[in-house]
């Protein structure tokens, strides 16, 4: 599935939930199912610091695709992180770098991406994009036979 298809699928999942409790219960459940980051990567290097909750993010390249694993000390943040990973993991750096993210807004969680929210989610989105851009630049320079 493309990033767009994955986003549309999430939007459709959430559209069946009528109240905030159902949405949050779903998010909390997703958090519990999140593919956890290997403990050895839960280091300051992998930490995306929000003011209140923290997110650890690790990236691996497999067959030209980026695989993300993550964790957070707060369950709701972990659920939101899980949504992000569902959308981005297994996609190419090129697609991730170019992707437009609209699902957060569409499922009514846009306030989680405001800079004042301080839950690390906005920083995480930026970090995922940065990783993708860096991998993309690296593969471009390898194609051109130049060192980064």
């Amino acid at each position: 599935m493309t990033i767009k298809e994955k986003q549309d699928e999430l939007i459709s999942d959430f559209s069946f939930m009528e109240n905030w409790m159902d949405k949050y219960e779903h998010i909390i459940q997703l958090g519990k199912e999140l593919p956890l980051i290997d403990e050895k990567y839960k280091t300051p290097d992998h930490l995306i610091k929000g003011c209140q909750s923290q997110v650890w993010l690790h990236t691996d390249m497999q067959d030209g695709k980026l695989i993300f694993t993550a964790d957070s000390d707060a369950v709701i943040t972990k659920g939101l992180v899980s949504l992000m990973i569902t959308v981005f993991s297994g996609q190419t750096p090129k697609d991730i770098a170019a992707a437009e993210i609209y699902f957060i807004d569409a499922i009514g969680l846009s306030n989680h991406l405001s800079p004042t929210r301080s839950n690390g989610l906005l920083s995480m989105l930026k970090q995922i994009k940065l990783y993708a851009i860096a991998y993309e630049a690296k593969s471009q320079s390898q194609k051109n036979g130049t060192e980064l």
Partner: peptide, 13 residues
């Protein structure tokens, strides 16, 4: 061991 952020979020709602 509930994170204060999680509790605050659900109280806000």
């Amino acid at each position: 061991d509930i994170h204060p952020y999680d509790l605050g979020e659900l109280l806000d709602k």
